[in-house]
Computed example of a mutant assay.
Amino acid sequence: MTHAKGFTSKLRAHMAAGAFLAAGAVAFAPIAQAANEDHDAALLVTDTAAQAVTALDDQVISDDEADRVLSNVDIDAVAKFTLGNKWANISADEQSRYVDAFRVFARNQMKEHLSGLSGADVKVTDVIARGDKDAIVVTQVRTAGNDLPQEMSWRVMANGSWHIVDIQAQDIWFAIEQRAQFGAILDRNNGDIDALINEISS
């Protein structure tokens, strides 16, 4: 169990680096030249960042504040993606319990690591359309006491409405990284989905 806890701590540290808006960990990058701030995907990203910054006004992130920010993330889709092929091989009950655990995990990460956006200014610098329902929104983040902008890219997809499905920082797409980490947990536990649920719920 000690080994499992250590693995989970490393996983959470990876996630905190950028998957849930910890802007302080992202790489330095120059300001891009073009932007399409009126694109629906861009508007979603700026709204999400604004909600996160506003939530930090009193330095305390409540469950409700975290859930409001996460309402712009397609948690169901991200949770399903992180299981890869395993998703199709588990029961409907296991799928439901896993998504519930993943949602709690995401909220806890948000509350614990949101401080990276305290006082930040987030500006859309580019929107890379990948089709009518898929876009990469590139942003520059300026935080208090840091003169150099930092770059974050947001994968945004439309399924009825636009939602965030991944975030890139330091050349890492974090949902993809998380999928690999979750796969390692499953491999270590002979594919036992309950072991993964327990890991991300603890």
Rank of each mutant, 00 (worst) to 15 (best):
E112M: 03
E37G: 03
G84A: 13
G119F: 04
G191L: 08
K133G: 06
K111S: 09
Q109P: 00
G183D: 10
S96C: 03
D57F: 04
G84R: 03
H163R: 10
E94I: 05
V165D: 09
L186P: 01
S118I: 08
G18C: 03
Q95R: 13
A49W: 01
A66I: 02
A23E: 14
R68T: 11
H14M: 07
N85G: 13
V26K: 02
L186K: 01
D194K: 08
N159K: 06
L43F: 01
M15S: 01
K111A: 07
L11M: 13
A120E: 09
A66R: 00
L117Q: 02
I172L: 04
K80H: 14
A135D: 12
N36I: 00
I167P: 13
A120L: 11
I90G: 07
D47L: 00
G131D: 09
Q33L: 05
D192P: 02
F7A: 03
E94K: 12
A175N: 02
G84P: 12
A19Q: 10
R68I: 07
S161L: 01
D76C: 08
M157V: 15
T143M: 08
D76I: 11
I167S: 09
D47S: 06
E177W: 01
V45S: 04
R107H: 14
I172H: 03
I75S: 14
V138K: 04
N89R: 15
D192K: 10
T139W: 08
R155L: 05
F7L: 10
N198S: 03
A13M: 06
A4P: 12
G131Q: 08
K123E: 09
K111F: 05
Q181K: 06
D74K: 11
W154H: 12
V127N: 14
W162Q: 08
V138D: 04
T48W: 01
N108H: 02
D58M: 01
I61C: 07
D74N: 14
N198Q: 07
G24T: 09
D100V: 14
N198P: 00
D76A: 14
A88C: 13
F102W: 02
L117T: 09
A184N: 06
Q140H: 12
G191I: 11
E94M: 10
P149K: 12
Q150N: 04
V45C: 02
A42R: 02
A92P: 09
I185H: 00
A17W: 03
Q140M: 08
F174S: 01
I61Q: 04
I75T: 15
Q33H: 10
F105Q: 07
L196P: 06
S115D: 12
L196K: 12
D100H: 12
Y98S: 01
D134T: 10
V156S: 07
F28E: 07
A180T: 03
V78A: 15
G191N: 09
K10V: 11
I200H: 04
E94Q: 14
V141R: 01
D132R: 08
W87Q: 07
M157W: 07
D93F: 12
S96I: 00
F174L: 02
S91N: 13
A22E: 09
R68Y: 07
A22S: 05
H163S: 11
D58A: 01
G18N: 03
D121G: 05
K10N: 11
Q168W: 12
S118K: 05
V127Q: 10
